[in-house]
Design a protein around this nucleic acid. Structure first.
Lengths: 357, 357
DNA sequence: TTGTAAGCGTTATCAC
DNA sequence: GTGATAACGCTTACAA
C-alpha cells in the first residue's frame, strides 16, 4: 500500500524523488508525510470550517506549498458528491447576449467557488445527447438557455439536478425561471408607436423554434388587435442581420411600399432592416418609416443606429439566475419560482413614439 | 460492504427500492446485479474498444437503460487521470471574438468528447488565483487567451498540463501558440493607405497590457518610418466604442484638424471613431479622412459602417487551437509550435486604399 | 485536536 | 470473454 503513512516525516527531496519515480501526482499523503501529520489532518486544513490547531495548519500549509500540492477535485467530488461545477446549456451562443451574460454568470459563480462547464448545442435537436454528457459530469446545477421538453425537465428532477431556465418558457410545467416579460414589452412599444399615429405595421419574426420570439410576435399582434389596428404583415426571420435585410425587402415587395412601422424580433434584425431601408431603399427612418428592435444590445446604441428598442436588463437577469441557482443548490426545498423582469423602452432615433400612458 | 455483488440477479424494483432507501446514485454495481454480470463487465461495456461479448453488451445496456445509469465522470477521472475537460482561460470575454471563437472551440472539443470549463479572469491580475482553480479541476489541457508570466508558463509545464496560447505573445519562452501576424497586418494596411497618398497618420491604441495591441501599434509606427512618413499621433484607447469616440476627439483637438488617416487598434474603436467623425464632426469618411480597424468582426461588415479593416481568420484559428491542443493531449512529445495566421485586408468603404504591391 | 479506517464509483491488472 | 481485487485521492465518522 503506497498510501500508508510512515512513522517519521521525510525530507522534501525524498518525497519528490518518490513522486518522480512512481510518476504520480502529489497527494495529501505526501504532504502529510512531509508535515509529519496524518493524511486526514491535511484534508482538514483545506476545508474552511474544520477543526485544526494553528500549529498543524501552519506546518501543513508550508509542506503543501513546498510540494506544490493542490487537492484533487475529482477525488473530492467523488466523496462529497458535489463537483462545484455548473452546466451552462445554451442552444445558440449568438443569441444569448454575449459577453454580458456569460461574464456576469462567470463572475457570480466564481464568487461561490463554482465553475461553468459549457454545453453549446451543436443543433437545437441534440439536447438529449448533450444532457447525457451533463449527467456524466455530475454538475451541481445548470443554467439552461435552450428548449427543453417536459421529459427533459423531468429528467433534471429525477436526477436531482437543480436548474434555472434562462429567458425560455416551458408551457405547462412550472420550473424555476428567469425571464423578461415579452408581452409587456411588446405592448409598450406597440402602444407608443400607435400613439404616434402609425397604422400599418409589419413584423419581422424570430426563429419558429424560439418560444421567446414567438411570444414577441404574438404579443405585438395581440396589442394591435386590442387597439383596433390591422394585423401586422408577418415575415420570417432568424435573428441574424441578413434576415433583417431580407425581411425589409420582403415587406416592401409584398406591400408594394413601406408600412408605417416595422417591429423586428430582435436588435440585430432591426439593424439589418434599418441598413437596408436607409442605404438600399433610400427610405427616411424614422421620417417615412419607424423601425424598432428587441433586446437592447450594446451595438443598438452605436451612433449610426441609435435604435429604438426594448432593453432587457440582461446583467440583472444573469445575476438573478445565479442567485436562484445558488439557493437551489444549497437547499432544494424552495418551490418553483419565476422571476419576471421588465424591459424598458430605449427611445432611440429610429421610430416616432407617442407618449407613454 | 454495500458493493459486493449478490449471487443472483435482482429485479428492477428491488434495486430501485434499495437505491431509494440508501439515497445513493445508480452505480455500475446496480447495473451488474440487474444484468447478472460482474461490475467490471459493466465497466467494459461503456469503454469503446473493450472486449465484451455481444450478448453481455446487450444485457448490460438494457439494464443500464432501465436504471438510468450513467457512468460517473469523477470516479472515472480519478482512476484514468483524465477529466475530459479543457480549461478556457480568458482575461476579457469582450475582446475574444464571441461567439465565433467560443462556439468553434466548443464544437471542436465536443467532437473529441471534451468539455470546456470556463475561467474568466475577474481582472487581469488574478491569474494565479485562477490557475490554482485550474489545477484543482484536473483539466487535460487549456486554451489560454490571457497574459501569462514565465513563472505561470513554467507551472503549466511542471504540472504536465498542455496548453495553447491563443492570440497572445510570450517574449522569450517558446510555447505552443496560435496567433495572427499583426506585424504583417499592420504593414499591409499602412502600405495601402500610404500608396493612396495619406501622409499624416494618427493611431488609437489598444490597452497597454495587451501584447497584441502593442504589437499593432508598434508595427504601424515601424512601417510608417520605413516609408519615410512622419510618426503617427498616438492616443490611448481601451478597445471599446467610447474610447474610439474619445480618441477621435483627442486626435482632432491635438492636431487642430483631422489627420489623413486614423488607424484604430480594433474594429470596435474604429466604429466609435467613425461614428464620431461622421455624426459629431460632420467629417467625410473616407473623403476627408480614412479610418481603419483591426479584427474583422461581424459588425464591421454592417452596411452603415462597411469598415475597412484587417480580418483575422478567427474560426480557423479556433480550429487550429483545438487541433493543436488535441494533439498535445494525446502525445506530449511534439515540440513547441507556433502557428501564425495571416490577416487579410477587407476593402470596406471607410478608407481610400492604394494598390497592393 | 488528531489519527484510524471506511468508503465514494470507477478503471486496470491479472488470473481463469 | 469474464470476474476478483487493487488502486485512484479524497472526506468523514468515530475513536482516542
Amino acid at each position: 500500500m503506497t498510501n500508508s503513512t510512515p512513522p517519521l516525516s521525510s525530507s522534501i527531496a525524498d518525497i519528490k524523488a518518490l513522486i518522480g519515480r512512481e510518476a504520480r501526482r502529489v497527494t495529501s499523503y505526501d504532504v502529510a508525510r512531509l508535515a509529519g501529520v496524518s493524511q486526514s489532518a491535511v484534508s482538514r486544513c483545506f476545508k474552511p470550517g474544520a477543526s485544526v490547531s494553528k500549529a498543524t495548519q501552519a506546518r501543513v500549509m508550508k509542506a503543501a506549498q513546498e510540494l506544490d500540492y493542490i487537492p484533487n477535485a475529482a477525488a473530492r467530488s467523488l466523496i462529497t458528491r458535489r463537483s462545484n461545477q455548473v452546466a451552462l446549456i445554451v442552444s445558440n451562443l449568438a443569441t444569448l447576449h454575449f459577453p454580458e451574460v456569460l461574464s456576469e454568470l462567470s463572475r457570480q459563480f466564481g464568487q461561490r467557488g463554482m465553475r461553468i462547464l459549457l454545453f453549446a448545442l451543436p443543433s437545437e435537436g441534440d439536447v438529449d445527447q448533450t444532457l447525457a454528457d451533463v449527467w456524466q459530469h455530475q454538475v451541481d446545477g445548470a443554467i439552461v438557455a435552450a428548449r427543453l421538453s417536459p421529459a427533459q425537465v423531468a429528467e433534471f428532477e429525477r436526477r436531482g439536478v437543480p436548474f434555472v431556465l434562462f429567458n425560455r418558457h416551458l408551457s405547462g410545467h412550472s420550473v424555476n425561471t428567469i425571464v423578461c416579460d415579452q408581452v409587456e414589452a411588446a405592448r409598450l412599444i406597440v402602444s407608443r408607436l400607435a400613439a404616434a399615429g402609425h397604422k400599418r405595421f409589419a413584423m419581422i419574426d424570430g426563429p419558429h423554434d424560439s418560444a421567446i420570439a414567438q411570444e414577441r410576435t404574438r404579443s405585438v399582434a395581440a396589442r394591435l388587435a386590442e387597439l383596433g389596428l390591422a394585423a401586422p404583415l408577418l415575415v420570417a426571420g432568424n435573428y441574424d442581420y441578413a434576415s433583417g435585410a431580407r425581411g425589409m425587402r420582403e415587406v416592401v415587395s409584398r406591400l408594394g411600399r413601406a408600412p408605417d412601422a416595422i417591429v423586428c424580433g430582435n436588435d440585430v434584425m432591426a439593424i439589418g432592416c434599418l441598413d437596408t431601408a436607409r442605404h438600399e431603399m433610400q427610405l427616411d427612418v424614422p421620417g417615412a418609416l419607424s423601425i424598432t428592435g428587441f433586446d437592447g444590445v450594446t451595438q443598438a446604441g452605436w451612433l449610426s443606429y441609435n435604435l429604438t428598442t426594448l432593453r432587457q436588463p440582461m446583467q440583472s437577469m444573469a445575476m438573478a439566475a445565479s442567485d436562484m441557482l445558488g439557493a437551489l443548490m444549497l437547499d432544494k426545498s424552495t418551490g418553483p419560482e419565476r422571476r419576471v423582469f421588465s424591459a424598458s423602452v430605449v427611445e432611440g432615433a429610429t421610430a416616432r413614439l407617442g407618449p407613454a400612458f
